[in-house]
Design a protein around this nucleic acid. Sequence first.
DNA 1: GTATTTAGTTAGTTTTGCTAACTACTATGG
DNA 2: CCATAGTAGTTAGCAAAACTAACTAAATAC
Lengths: 168, 168
Amino acid sequence: MAPSSRSRKPPADRSLVADRLHSAAIHILRRLRREDPAMGLSGPRASALSVIVFGGPITLGDLAAVEQVRPPTMTHLVRALEHMGLVTRVPDPHDHRVVRIAATHRAHAVLAEGRARRVGALTQALDGLGERDVATLSRAAYLLEWLARSTTSHPGQAVPPSRRSFPG
Amino acid sequence: MAPSSRSRKPPADRSLVADRLHSAAIHILRRLRREDPAMGLSGPRASALSVIVFGGPITLGDLAAVEQVRPPTMTHLVRALEHMGLVTRVPDPHDHRVVRIAATHRAHAVLAEGRARRVGALTQALDGLGERDVATLSRAAYLLEWLARSTTSHPGQAVPPSRRSFPG
DNA sequence: GTATTTAGTTAGTTTTGCTAACTACTATGG
DNA sequence: CCATAGTAGTTAGCAAAACTAACTAAATAC
């Protein structure tokens, strides 16, 4: 299947790599989504909640930026989380326009459990891999986050991540 | 835990890696989605079309399996692609239940251009990376595809990918 | 003290995904 | 040869997630 051209360093056509990464990201998320119903916390919700829980209270706009979505989308996500009793809106006393989103007690518990479920499938799959492959994916996760944040029309500002800057 | 037999690689807790991969996949896709409108081919459509174009005609069911979605979802996607004049349904002469999905002329052109456009942002970002990081991501793409297909209730059948089996 | 900018929400649409139930066809077992 | 069981896809109906456009309310600027 894989045309194993066994050379030292195939130049790795970047657009081909980009294309494959794109497909891979789509497929892994679709696979993971199948675990959702069991826990009632979808990917986008879990991701947003994770930011709130680990980063502390954050404004809706900033949360939208971090999560790479538009404000209206985040309004919906936050509302859903609010209905689930996982976050509360805390109005800013100094600036009455802004709303800070804070995690409730339950959020910590639910997130821990939810993550265990959803990411559990992936974790289990990772067990089938060797140390080196896991290390490769660890580094890849870091690179992908960097890629997601670069190319955002700050071409000059973005600095390629140092290979030493992350333990993966 | 299991101390890496190699040098100073940290053990890389698998559930942590899984969590970070999960977030990274979400964020990279959201970033990529912003490029969609420029080419009129969304992620799922581009992904499916890519399979058809490069793999040749394929039944709807098989395509759904490859793309990790249910048949009704693929029916929708195929219909959209059909309306865009990118694929045609070819009934199987031997088994009148099955429908093969084939790419049209335009599909090749659109996909080539679309890839340049859509994945262009990612490709460009990749240019900011060194050979080694690109190689890491190339290998990661392969591993992610494997992960997406594993843990699918064929626990015995899945075979961890050989490190040599892919030129990345 | 109006005018502009900023933060968030509301309204409405589209895409993507699901399950359940259906149609149409194939294959099998008397 | 026909009844029955299984398979491939579609239809119907639903929900989540995303967008843009247009709005409200509040802060800042001139």
